[in-house]
Computed example of a mutant assay.
Amino acid sequence: MENTAINETVFSQLLVDVGEEMLPALVAVFNEETTERISELELLVVNVDNHKVAQNCHSIKSSAGTYGALVVQQHAEELEIMAKSNHTDEVQEKLPLLIGSLQDAINELSLRCD
């Protein structure tokens, strides 16, 4: 994996697909929804509900990929599998990594659209 929160190739293709005018609005929606998910995930770190973790991670996985947040996508995929397998201790340990990578992605996307 690369050292940036957002993959340049994927992000550049998104820019081509949606256009410069539309991209900031889409990023704003992603950032808002992701901020809400972070709040949900922070609660799940304390009281793990594997079903809710799996649902959140499934949604995060696909939307993160769209924006080039490949580290987020990878963490979400791993967590979804762990949660579906009821590996609660591993889920609880890995959730903070997902939360941190989500915050990094939000920050980097915001900088790219300012």
Rank of each mutant, 00 (worst) to 15 (best):
Q55H: 10
L98E: 06
V72W: 03
S85R: 10
Q73N: 10
G65K: 11
V91M: 08
I60F: 05
H87R: 12
H75P: 00
L95T: 09
N47S: 14
E77I: 06
A69P: 10
T66K: 10
I60W: 00
S85P: 01
S101H: 10
A64S: 14
A105E: 03
K84P: 01
T66C: 08
A76L: 03
E42W: 00
A64Q: 05
D89Y: 00
S63T: 15
Q55I: 14
I106P: 04
V46P: 00
L97M: 13
Q74Y: 04
E90V: 09
I106D: 08
Q73W: 04
N86C: 03
G100K: 13
A54D: 07
N107I: 06
A76M: 05
L102G: 03
S62Q: 06
M82C: 04
V72S: 06
I81K: 14
H58W: 01
E78H: 13
Q74A: 14
H87T: 01
L102S: 04
L79M: 02
K84V: 02
D104C: 10
K61E: 00
V71W: 00
E90D: 12
E90T: 07
T66A: 11
A76H: 08
A105K: 10
P96D: 07
Q92C: 05
H75F: 08
A69C: 13
H51G: 07
E93I: 07
G100E: 09
P96T: 08
T88L: 00
Q103S: 14
A64L: 07
N86A: 11
V45C: 12
L43Q: 15
Q92N: 08
Q55R: 14
V91F: 03
E77T: 13
E77R: 15
V45H: 01
A69F: 06
V71M: 11
V71E: 11
K94V: 01
L97V: 04
P96E: 08
V46D: 09
V53I: 12
M82D: 08
L70C: 02
A105M: 04
G100T: 11
A54C: 08
L43W: 02
S85A: 15
D89W: 00
H58T: 02
